[in-house]
Design a protein around this nucleic acid. Structure first.
Lengths: 141, 141
DNA sequence: GTAATTGCAAATACTTTGCCACGTA
DNA sequence: TACGTGGCAAAGTATTTGCAATTAC
């Protein structure tokens, strides 16, 4: 784990970021938790809370995302997205990270087998999934 | 398409919602666009703009979501989630819609083939994907 | 020394609610 | 008539920015 933290900080350094206490703690917190976290969670987490301001964490996340070291999950707009559920139909999406276009994918979704497996193994109820592909569309490239 | 709109409105009626102009237009707009949309997009879209207030659209979306007729995409919290990208590793997630717990899935991701196919067929660059499973965990059930 | 980074506070943006008027059943 | 629904305006929460002070290199 320590090595992984160091590696990641090295990648930050290589990207031109400075090695600050806030950066180290942010990386450490994310790696130790091993799951996606919100800005609020991060900024109030044990080691970051008294270490730095929420704005600092925000700007760090922003910089790290620019350099591809972290990723902001979801449809990349500040607003929430809603979609109609049509019985018997399921759709996955292809989103351009440049212009934000969202289109449905017609191809059959390859995830159902895994979904069944998860249902059995974990005991989760009312299981469903969301699958999104992100990339830069030909127009934006 | 018209039939689909009517069907959906019928499902709303069956769920106990009243048949109002705003409801009809909202359903129609979502179906005609065939993609996830934001509250702002919906509230300012041609047929809804002069039809009703943004608060109305918001409460409609809320009600429809409660009845399982629409779905709000994303990790179901208002805040954005960030995750570290570790080279060579990819993770999919299992999220409990009850308590909000997020855990990583170890199972190999079944999506890479489709991702390759999309890369070829659409010409999108820098393609990656996000896959999330949602359900009610045993504790919350 | 210089440019990146930080803290604090203020400004935005999106979401959500209160309250009373209105329309559907 | 009764209760779900709608409009308007205000409140709530998350995100983002300005600027002067600080720190890494």
């Amino acid at each position: 784990m320590k090595a992984l933290i160091q590696d990641t900080i090295e990648r930050c350094r290589a990207a031109g970021l400075r090695r600050t206490k806030a950066l180290e703690e942010l990386i450490r917190t994310l790696l130790e938790n091993g799951r996606p976290m919100t800005l609020a969670e991060l900024a109030t987490s044990e080691h970051l809370a008294d270490q730095c301001d929420k704005a600092t964490v925000f700007r760090l996340l922003q910089r790290l995302a620019e350099h591809g070291i972290i990723r902001r999950l979801g449809l990349h707009e500040r607003a929430a997205y809603f979609t109609l559920l049509v019985p018997g139909k399921h759709s996955d999406y292809l989103i351009c990270t440049g212009c934000g276009t969202i289109e449905s994918i017609k191809a059959p979704c390859p995830v159902h087998a895994l979904e069944d497996e998860i249902r059995e193994k974990t005991g989760y109820r009312n299981l469903y999934h969301e699958l999104e592909f992100f990339g830069v569309c030909p127009k934006c490239a």
